[in-house]
Amino acid sequence: MSSTAMGAARDSGAPPRSPRQQRGGLARAQRARNRNAFFLIIPSIVLLAVVIGYPIVSAIVMAFQKDAGLDAATGFFVQGGFAGISNFTHWLLQQCPTSDGGTTSCPPGNLGAQFWSSTFTTFFFTVVTVICETVFGFWMAIIMNRAFHGRSLVRTAILVPWAIPTAVTAKLWFFIFSVAGIVNSLFATKILWTSDDWPARIAIIIIDVWKTTPFMALLILAGLQLIPEEVYEAARVDGATTWKSFWTITLPLVRPALLVAVLFRILDALRMYDLPAIFGGGDATATWSVLVVQQMRQGPNAASALSTIVFVFIFLVAFLFVRFLGANVVQTTQAQQKGELK
């Protein structure tokens, strides 16, 4: 179903009109469409600008303010004031204020010193969980798309992990992963899943994959519905194997829905908070958001600076993702539009 085929079909189906009449009518129709489109989108934009745009702006403004506290140079309590970029260097370069008014490297244990390790943790969690969730989600969606006994039961039961609030999920898995818990007794091990660095990281990844795979599966399942059965039948007649028709038919046709699901999954995974905060693991599982919450208790302005830095990082990730992987989606839509405007 390429755009050329659609264009051809449209040309043959359109009633014959004189070229001038057609051009004038189309231009007017296009202006009306643009105006309509504006009114269709503007309510959503206004709502988001007010509800979410304002906090973003406010975080950026706060990021340039000093936190109230003891001045390292004088020892007096100060109310704050303009901080310049000191809040940002605190996180990015681990610079803490010293008694002579200058700055020095933050000592270990200071939250500022944890920025890059939390960056690693966040990206590690994001990459591993999103890959696992995509693979398992795709696979579950394909299974759920087939006919078998109890399919509706499976389709419903699959939503359970996702339907339970994360805070409670983390607590339940805490029992499962505890030292004398089911996992350790099942494998006859004594691993400290909830406190050792790597076991805690692995446990959090397992929980997150368990919890969020239904999200991916649901969206991919909806995407699979767009593929007409005839396409598979045609491929089968041509002798394509299951594997081959997956790569050449299923994947390309599901791609738009899949990319959206992966993109939003990445955005959420980069802001993961509840699971590491409640499950445990200490500094080894402290993501960006955990660090923001910890800093929030010490000084909201430095926390805002960290939030702004996180915002910029996530912005870059999303931009690169849309630019390189989403390019194809953009092109097909533009090709469609060109076809329409022709």
Binding site: S44, L48, I52, G53, P55, I56, A59, L263, F264, L267, D268, R271, Y273, W288, S289, V292, V293, M296, A303, S304, S307, V310, F311, I314, F315, A318, V322
Partner: peptide, 12 residues
């Protein structure tokens, strides 16, 4: 629409 999903929730 995407940028509204980039700030840590707690910051908002």
């Amino acid at each position: 629409f995407l940028t509204t999903k980039m700030l840590p929730m707690v910051a908002g």
